[in-house]
Every structure is written in C-alpha cells, then in structure tokens.
C-alpha cells in the first residue's frame, strides 16, 4: 500500500509494467518488430531484452499479420503475449487476426478457450508522421465485441492499466499516444492495477463536463485551467477505457453540469464522441441537458504532414477553450 512513489516517464512506466509482469509470470512475453536490442520504435521495451533474453523479448520479422496470428495462437495455448505494433496504422495489416480471430474465438467456440492477448500500439499525430503513421483508430476497435480498448493518459495509469490488461483473460487493445511517451508523473514502485472499467474524474467542476482520453485529456485539463481564470469550472473526465466505457461516471457528471463536450483525436464522424453523446441522449441524464452536446473531433481528412496543417487537423487547447466557453455561456 505504501510503495515509494517516483517521477517516471510514460514509456518507462509501461516498461516497468512489462518487467513486473514478466518477472512474476513465465508465460508473459513481449513480441513485435524491433522490440529487442533496438528497444522498440519508441524505446518502450528498452533494455527488456537484456533483462529477460531473446526468448521472452522476441523480434518478429516485419509481418504484422503473421505476428498477430502467432500471438493469438500462443495466447490460445498457454502463453500470455504482449504484441507491439510499431504504429496503430499498421494494425490494418493485422486486422484479420485481431478482429476475426482474437475478438471472436472465445464466443465462437462456446467459451471453451480464451485469448489472453495484449496488443500495444502507439497512436495519434503530433510528430510529423503524416497520413500513414499518425492515425487514431480507437473507434474501429471499440466497435468490436470481444475486445477491450484502453488508452491511458498518465504514467500512473499506463502502468496500472497495462498490468490489468496483461492479467485480463481476454484480448485488450492498448493505445499509447506518442506525445505522452515523454511526459512524466508520479508512479508507485511495484505491482498495482487500475481496473479496466472505470473512468477517472481528473478535475471537478460545475459548469460543463469534458470527456477526453489520452493526450486529449491532457489538453482538456490545460483548457480547464484557462477556463477557470474566466470563472468557468470544467469537470474533466478521462474514460481511460473506451470499451467497456464507464458511462455511469459521465452521466453522473452531466446530471450536475448539464453540459457535455467530448474531445477526441480520431475523425469526428462515427467516432468515440458519437457513442458517448448518444449514450447520454438515450439515458436518464438527457433530462438534465441544458445545451446541445458538442463534439470536438479530428478533421475529416488524412493527417497532413506540414506542421501547421497537422495541428489544424486535430483539436488543440484553444479549440477546447472556445467550445467550452460557448457551451458554458449558453451560446451553443
């Protein structure tokens, strides 16, 4: 309970979770492209290969589909793989195994098997990766029954959620926003888990509710600080887990604030925001809404390369401030 708490980077927190899980359980192993001596495309696996050896930190060929399938097969037969895709964009190559196989095997086979698989993938824009290295595809996976979809915001949650994901008997898709890798925060030593079904209220407020995950939760908090100086108190809820989504926490908040803004990086239409907005509109919180629900999502475009364009294509702090202001002032 009283493990010492240090400041740790987001990537280090993930690596620490992997190391704890691997040290505790021989069945846990890491596989993916360049996860070994290279240390992972974003240096997340780092020195794990030196600590656990090449049998447990396995460099795969550049074979996303084959690698994903090997991970599914290993998970079916007694191992607990953590499969890293270098970019979430590359999940398109592995989709068959993730969506048709991993997500469905347990159900399709009447409960006689389970697939304890974690697929980690860096997501999002902000590093000039352009259209094929910057997408936010969370909603694709969140649409698939049988998968759980996680997206941490803080190093604390990254570690605790990843340990929970590895413990979980079913496939979990673990999104890591690239801009968060270098962020730091307090992380206790040793094992702890953050449950895979609970949102976190990152800031309390009375005037409106902002729901945002990952780097967008960070931006929403920055926006809330600016808003507070104008007398607008925004409540910021970080879902942490997009499937299953903790709508009860969002609904309770909206019941108090009467206003809801959802911020996400993926393209605005048919995204996370639509699901949250619809769930509120369908539920008891509807009668407490005193303004339309607003969504701030990514532009309906591939992510462009040029920095100014790239920035313009996804919600920024000032966009959140402007939208929240309109909502709180009854102008929306």
């Amino acid at each position: 309970m009283t493990a010492p708490i240090r400041e740790l980077g987001f990537a280090e927190a993930i690596r620490e979770a992997l190391a704890i899980a691997m040290a505790e359980d021989e069945r846990v192993f890491v596989m993916g492209e360049d996860v070994g001596v290279y240390g992972g495309a974003f240096q997340v696996t780092g020195d794990l290969v030196q600590r656990f050896g090449e049998d447990r930190v396995v460099d795969t060929p550049i074979s996303e589909l084959g690698g994903a399938g090997v991970a599914v097969g290993a998970a079916l037969t007694g191992l607990k793989p953590v499969f890293e895709l270098q970019f979430s964009d590359f999940s398109t190559l592995a989709m068959e195994q993730i969506v048709n196989q991993a997500a469905k095997l347990r159900y399709m086979l009447g409960g006689s098997v389970s697939v304890p698989l974690v697929v980690r993938m860096p997501t999002g824009s902000g590093l000039g990766g352009a259209a094929q290295h910057s997408q936010s595809l969370e909603a694709w996976f969140a649409h698939v029954p049988g998968l759980k979809v996680v997206e941490p915001t803080t190093p604390y949650d990254a570690k605790g959620l990843l340990l929970a994901a590895i413990d979980d008997p079913d496939p979990v898709i673990f999104f890591e926003h690239k801009l968060l890798y270098k962020t730091k925060g307090p992380v206790p030593e040793g094992r702890y888990v953050v449950p895979l079904d609970r949102a976190e209220t990152r800031r309390a407020g009375r005037d409106l509710t902002i729901v945002a995950a990952g780097v967008m939760a960070q931006k929403a908090l920055d926006a809330a600080t600016i808003l507070a100086s104008e007398g607008i108190e925004a409540e910021v809820i970080d879902p942490r887990v997009l499937r299953p989504l903790d709508m009860a926490t969002v609904a309770r908040s909206v019941t108090r604030t009467s206003r809801l803004l959802i911020v996400y990086e993926g393209a605005k239409s048919f995204g996370i925001g639509a699901e949250i907005a619809a769930a509120i509109a369908e539920g008891e919180a509807f009668g407490h809404l005193d303004a339309p629900i607003l969504r701030l999502g990514g532009a309906e475009t591939p992510i462009p390369y040029s920095p100014a364009l790239e920035r313009a294509a996804v919600p920024q702090v000032e966009d959140i401030v402007a939208a929240a202001r309109r909502l709180a002032r009854g102008e929306a």
Binding site: F29, D55, L65, G66, G67, A68, G69, V70, A71, V72, G73, A74, A75, L76, T77, G78, L79, P81, E96, Q97, N100, Q101, L105, M108, L109, V113
Partner: peptide, 25 residues
Amino acid sequence: NLGANGIVGGGIPIAVGAALSAKRL
C-alpha cells in the same frame, strides 16, 4: 483441435503461435 476457421488462411499463423507455446513450454 483449435477450431475450424471461416477465414481462408486464418488458422495458419495461429498454428505457428501454438507451436511457439509448445516450444517455449
């Protein structure tokens, strides 16, 4: 029997994964 599969080629990488388990375990 890890199952019939509705996807052509779907079972092949899964078999490789099962073989990885057999080797590791």
